[in-house]
């Protein structure tokens, strides 16, 4: 019961974020296309996983798709945020290395697609951490747009890393403890999505209010 509440609350906040950011982007011309793409990708993956689960089918390949897709979109997003050529190059390298590794890894044995792959998870998470640090560094003296989102992503990636890495061990356990780690993951996702919502409130919704005040 509590698991469902946590999972569906996460879905709800994610959909709300997608709607809010889409309105800001398509109607008020504010925001970043890659960020909308990221939210859309997360929503599509979450609902696909839920659907597969409800149909009683294996959804681990979606997990792999999520990690690779996430690092691709996040790299492109941060690339659009950086102004220095060196940082743009860093994004290209991270993007290239992740894609190349995934191609080589799955070509070696395609069955890996249907398993939890620790190296894919570790590489994509480390890549995201590097991008977040580069982003934070670039924002030291500039505006704070997407600072809260990056903060949420950093916390989520750091905290959930162990949960994902231990997935293969906990998979064969009893339901009582198997789902406990995923319950914590759901809680972390809620915090992460709430920070994305807070980002919208601070960077996009509040600007409008300030404009209205001054006009």
């Amino acid at each position: 019961m509590i698991d469902d509440v946590l999972i569906y609350t996460g879905y709800g906040i994610l959909v709300l974020n997608l709607i809010l950011y889409s309105i800001s982007f398509f109607f008020k011309k504010k925001g970043n296309a890659f960020f909308i793409a990221y939210l859309f990708f997360c929503t599509a993956m979450q609902f696909s996983m839920e659907l597969m689960y409800l149909l009683g089918k294996e959804n681990l390949f979606l997990g792999n798709t999520f990690f690779i897709g996430q690092v691709i979109i996040i790299s492109l997003f941060y690339k659009s945020q950086f102004s220095l050529p060196f940082k743009k190059k860093l994004c290209n390298w991270i993007l290239g290395v992740n894609i190349l590794y995934a191609i080589l890894f799955f070509s070696y044995d395609f069955q890996f697609v249907f398993q939890t792959n620790l190296s894919i998870i570790t590489l994509s998470s480390l890549s995201i951490l590097i991008l977040i640090y580069a982003f934070f560094y670039s924002k030291l003296t500039r505006n704070k747009e997407y600072f809260n989102f990056s903060m949420g992503l950093l916390m989520y990636v750091c905290a959930s890393e162990v949960i994902y890495l231990s997935a293969n061990i906990t998979n064969s356990w009893s339901n009582e403890y198997k789902f406990f780690t995923w319950r914590i993951n759901s809680l972390l996702i809620i915090i992460y999505y709430l920070l994305i919502w807070y980002e919208w409130k601070v960077s996009f919704a509040q600007k409008k209010a300030q404009l209205q005040k001054t006009s």
Partner: peptide, 30 residues
Amino acid sequence: ALDYEKEVVTVIVCISMFFMTIAILLVVFF
């Protein structure tokens, strides 16, 4: 087996919280 699972879950949760704390401290530092 349940005791073992409980112990491992505790370790996972502790490590997860440890990384989370490091992340929060890094954000505060930034």
